[in-house]
Simulated assay, not measured.
Amino acid sequence: MQDLHSRLGAMRRPRLLVRAARIGASEYRRRPHLARLLGEPCPPQHGAALLQLMELEEMLDDGRQRRAADYSAAQHVELLAAIIGEARSLQVAARPSTGASA
């Protein structure tokens, strides 16, 4: 199984979707967005939330590629923005803290 960073790096989506998602990610707020997207309280860990979001996004992207009638570009952008937001939070959480040494 690929790790999260590999899976994120392997994602290929249309530039317009990604550009819109990056703009949306600047307004990303974890609790309200995850509650709306996942339909449940937000997972405490960024990795768990990211996996759930990526699974939903893969299904939505499949609908985009099939040109499904129920595909929503707005929902796709919202999911991608949440993925970007969670990935950024995961990256920040993974950084070693640089405490002041005495």
Rank of each mutant, 00 (worst) to 15 (best):
R22H: 09
L17S: 02
S6F: 00
V92L: 14
L17D: 04
M11W: 07
C42K: 08
R7D: 13
L17F: 05
Y71P: 02
Q52A: 15
A35M: 09
L16H: 06
Q65Y: 08
M54I: 10
L34A: 13
E40T: 11
E58K: 14
D62N: 08
R36N: 13
L56C: 14
L51S: 05
R67S: 13
I83G: 03
G63I: 00
E27A: 13
M1T: 09
H76V: 03
G9S: 15
C42W: 11
G63V: 00
H46D: 09
A73N: 00
A81T: 04
G47D: 13
M11C: 04
H33N: 12
C42F: 03
R22W: 07
P44K: 00
L50C: 02
C42N: 13
D61V: 01
R22F: 08
A68W: 00
A69C: 06
L50N: 04
G24S: 02
L16G: 00
R22C: 09
Q91F: 10
L60E: 13
A68R: 01
P41A: 09
C42G: 12
A82T: 04
R7W: 11
R31A: 15
S6C: 05
E78L: 09
R19K: 11
A48W: 01
H5S: 09
R64Y: 13
S6V: 01
R95Q: 15
V18C: 06
A20T: 03
A73E: 08
A94K: 10
G47Y: 01
A10L: 10
H76Y: 07
E86S: 06
P14L: 03
L80H: 01
L51G: 01
A68G: 04
A100T: 05
Q75D: 13
A69K: 02
E40N: 08
L56S: 09
L38C: 03
A35E: 15
D3R: 07
H46P: 00
P41Q: 04
R95A: 14
S6E: 07
T98S: 10
A35G: 06
C42T: 08
L51C: 11
S89R: 15
A25Y: 04
R64T: 00
R64D: 12
S97Y: 12
G9R: 15
T98K: 14
D61T: 02
I23V: 11
E40M: 09
A10C: 12
L90S: 13
A20M: 06
Q75Y: 06
S97W: 13
M54R: 08
R19H: 06
G24R: 03
A35S: 12
A25I: 05
M54S: 09
G85H: 08
A20E: 13
C42E: 15
A94P: 01
Q45W: 05
L50G: 05
Q2M: 10
E27Q: 08
M1W: 00
A102I: 12
G24K: 01
A102H: 11
G63C: 10
D61P: 03
H76P: 00
R31D: 15
R30D: 05
Y71C: 01
I83V: 14
G39S: 07
R36H: 14
R67F: 09
L34W: 11
G9K: 14
L4P: 12
A25C: 03
V18M: 11
P14C: 00
L4D: 07
H46C: 08
E40W: 05
M11E: 05
R30P: 05
